[in-house]
Design a protein around this nucleic acid. Sequence first.
DNA 1: CACGTATATACCTTGACAGGTATATACGTG
DNA 2: CACGTATATACCTGTCAAGGTATATACGTG
Lengths: 108, 108
Amino acid sequence: MCVTNAIWSALLDPHRRAVLDRLRERAYPVGELVEELRWTQPAASKHLKVLRDAGLVRVRKEAQQRIYSIDPGPIAELDAWIAPYRRLWNDRLDALARHLDDNDEKEK
Amino acid sequence: MCVTNAIWSALLDPHRRAVLDRLRERAYPVGELVEELRWTQPAASKHLKVLRDAGLVRVRKEAQQRIYSIDPGPIAELDAWIAPYRRLWNDRLDALARHLDDNDEKEK
DNA sequence: CACGTATATACCTTGACAGGTATATACGTG
DNA sequence: CACGTATATACCTGTCAAGGTATATACGTG
């Protein structure tokens, strides 16, 4: 329903945003993330825990591996949070458009 | 172009998000924000500084008052950051829609 | 069931940040 | 220019998050 602090806080860290970037394409086991993002393994575990607690990722077990995949729900909520602000830059673009139109008129 | 850490970090704090909420409607002098949000005055100054540094608000002087207004630019960038994720929940909704359609078919 | 692999957690240290009090700065007025 | 109002900054303190090392847990295999 709303963007919790846990979600904002999870998204604050660039490393964690980088993971989400990857996970957008496909699911990853922890080990592969450690390699690609050049983390230590414990750091990876901790960041992933934060993302889990915020509901931004899901895990499924596969033998010893944990496969992480993205859960877009919280980001959709973030999108909803932005919604009321959206008209602010739309208005501004409209104003700009009108301004340009006016100039067009004058040039005629 | 991109959502800087300063922007994420500024948006992390609920108090600061509350200010932006207000500023969406109109510009406010600091004093009024202090009242409405029940801050101490120094706290207000500091939060507003964080928002300023992140480019989320602008100030204009008016006698001794500083009038703060919102700058939607960074939030528009946040919107752009979300863009690539958007298809994730659209896809999911599509899948759900297809699923429901299938069930409709079966009921016939 | 001993062992290797994959991941999580405990614990410690360090740095960033929030809130508060006191103080500085800027501006308008008499 | 003394003074009041409006806002910003300095400084201190406590809290919390991040990163690292060491260790625990879970699972599959011989």
